[in-house]
Design a binder for these strands. Structure first.
Lengths: 221, 221
DNA sequence: GTGGAATCTTTGACGACTCAAAGATATCAT
DNA sequence: ATGATATCTTTGAGTCGTCAAAGATTCCAC
């Protein structure tokens, strides 16, 4: 229904909302940055979205999804994440290289196809990066996770989700055996050096605390 | 590289060429009809394609693919047919309902993804309708086929390809057990009634001779 | 509370693709 | 070979999404 461009704006607005503060208004500059257009373009487009009842918008006041807009956004996210799951799990593509393809395919799959894909994949609840896949009604079943940087030294936790999905970071995790589902022991943090050391499969891996904030572990262990 | 619209025009021109007369020029009216635009739009667009070296074009003289255009067209066809194969064989979709999805997806898959898909599917040489899938260099390995309407009465043949891919015809074939690969015995033709009767799996099925022209059997039995 | 600085909006324009309708050319039957 | 008809081309205009640059508003530091 919505055009590909519209879907991208809605997805951007959805994912730009601050965690915990979902009703806050997203600055248009952020939207422009996420979609990859100039601020003026974002303003024009957001006004159009408002006209279609997909967002609430006030001049100089940021933008906020309506219920209708949020539904559309979660539908796109569902398509994106199911497609990424398929590309990695079924076709064996690398989790650091599937984003582009998923970005394009997410606008091209019908509901019938998506339902088949969901069934084929066994109705997964998270994608290869650990991001939750909304169900067909747009509901998320988010597992409770916490950054490994916040875990107690000496505790054993299970990696559950990667928040920084840049190909470089993902490849770094790959190279060091840090995968979703891996069990790791959090070693000493070195606040001075700004690093944290993890033990995974007998090997020690040291990462920056900033990076450790983007690597989440499941809380229930 | 080429835009989605350009790919659709090239694919249309490629598939509109008369079998056996591949160097003939395709009338622009046919292109317009296949792409679903008005004749004026087709003229404008074909001139643009000519400017990009994808087709040869002369006013009032029809259009013809260049080598470059033909490469691009076969690449689209390859994507389309591999995707249809995936949708039917892997996801279990009906061969009468995959066309729309394939039409959209064919413009959204990367080379890397297509290579993975091809491997996953076991490098198929034909799609679910029996249409040959060009290899990565654009070469077709077409099996020799003949319309069942031309087969000798009493002969046993194997169904190999469906030229009329309208959902109605495909569903008719489904309902009557006429599938690609099925072995059928050609019974009597009734030129008066304009029908032909086939025996498949012990059951008799009568189809119009026109329809029998669109149902192909492999020659080597 | 005021004067930048940062952010957002408006404006005019453009490229890609499209249509409707008027005009040009080709084709075919007589 | 000459109209009538079918086909093709041109023209003018419209939509969608975009940008650059100028103008408006908000925010923050002092």
């Amino acid at each position: 229904m919505a055009t590909e461009t519209v879907e991208n704006y809605l997805k951007a607005i959805f994912t730009l909302r601050k965690p915990g503060d979902e009703d806050a208004r997203v600055p248009l500059g952020d939207v422009a940055g996420a979609v990859g257009v100039t601020p003026g373009t974002a303003t024009t487009m957001v006004k159009k979205l408002a006209g279609e009842g997909l967002v609430r918008y006030e001049r100089y006041g940021g933008v906020q999804l309506t219920v209708k807009g949020e539904r559309a956004a979660t539908a796109v996210l569902r398509r994106h994440r199911l497609i990424e799951t398929f590309l990695v799990k079924t076709l064996g593509m690398d989790w650091s290289e599937v984003h582009e393809d998923a970005e394009r395919l997410e606008h091209a799959v019908s509901d019938a196809l998506l339902e088949r894909l969901d069934r084929f994949l066994g109705r997964p609840s998270v994608d290869p990066h650990g991001d939750p896949i909304p169900d067909i009604d747009g509901r998320f079943r988010e597992a409770r996770v916490v950054p490994v940087g916040r875990c107690k030294a000496g505790s054993r936790v299970r990696l559950a989700r990667v928040m920084d999905q840049s190909p470089e970071f993902l490849r770094f995790l790959d190279r060091n055996g840090l995968r979703i589902g891996s069990s790791v022991v959090v070693q000493s943090a070195e606040p001075g050096a700004g690093t944290l050391t993890l033990k995974v499969g007998g090997k020690m891996v040291t990462i920056a605390l900033a990076a450790a904030g983007n690597l989440m572990a499941s809380v229930a262990e």
